[in-house]
């Protein structure tokens, strides 16, 4: 149910290392705010759209993924047009549009495990200070992926139980048992993790 947003492929972006892509993305993001020429920004947006399309994602899926963020970008651009000028609006539209499309391209070409490896690198300073352990973070990520489908199924069960008793399904009367039943599992799960010595303690 919870699968990554990466698309399989062998394009240049797929083969580039995750770290390189992330650093490049941050550099471009910072650089874009220094550019205010609308024509230049429009050119960047076209290049970004080209890169995103070149990941082999397919137009429908590509649009479905970014439509909400692009919609908010459009609203912000519209506000700039209404209260300031058309050139301000276009600059915002192309600048943020470029950023969104590039970010979506990085996500589409980087696997979840490649991202997790980079997260582990970023956490290394914190690990040295003894604040947290990278292994605990990946354990937590794994637990979410393991239990989210289970919690969704439990939500379905609670709804069924309401229907069976002829009760209306209210947000509150579903939410409370869902939270309590889920969090009550924590002790058993923690015991199972410790019994297997996953955290080497």
């Amino acid at each position: 149910m919870l699968t990554g947003l990466d698309i399989e492929g062998t394009t240049l972006l797929h083969r580039a290392s995750a770290r390189l892509k992330l650093i490049a993305l941050f550099a471009v993001a910072a650089g874009l705010f220094a550019v205010s020429n609308v024509w230049l920004l429009a050119a960047f947006a076209i290049i970004a759209a080209g890169l995103y399309a070149s990941t082999g994602i397919g137009l429908r899926e590509a649009f479905r993924r970014v439509r909400f963020v692009l919609f908010t970008v459009l609203l912000v651009a519209l506000a700039n047009y209404l209260f300031h000028s058309l050139s301000d609006a276009l600059a915002v539209l192309f600048r943020l549009g470029t950023l969104v499309l590039l970010a979506a391209a990085v996500t589409a070409t980087t696997t979840v495990s490649a991202f997790m490896d980079e997260i582990a690198v970023l956490l290394r300073p914190l690990e040295r200070l003894g604040l947290l352990r990278a292994a605990d973070v990946s354990l937590a990520v794994g637990l979410v992926l393991r239990f989210a489908p289970e919690i969704l199924a439990r939500y379905g069960d609670i709804r069924e139980a309401h229907r069976a008793r002829g009760l209306r399904v209210r947000p509150l009367s579903v939410l409370v048992p869902l939270v309590i039943l889920t969090l009550k599992d924590a002790d058993t799960i923690a015991m199972a993790i410790d019994a297997r010595g996953f955290r080497r303690q």
């Binding site: 699968t3 990554g4 909400f68 963020v69 996500t107 589409a108 992926l145």
Partner: peptide, 18 residues
């Protein structure tokens, strides 16, 4: 890290760029 966990199946770095 690219999992569609936000409402409406949204996710990925594009969310942070918006």
């Amino acid at each position: 890290i690219g999992l569609p966990v936000l409402s409406g199946g949204r996710g990925g770095l594009a969310v942070f760029a918006g």
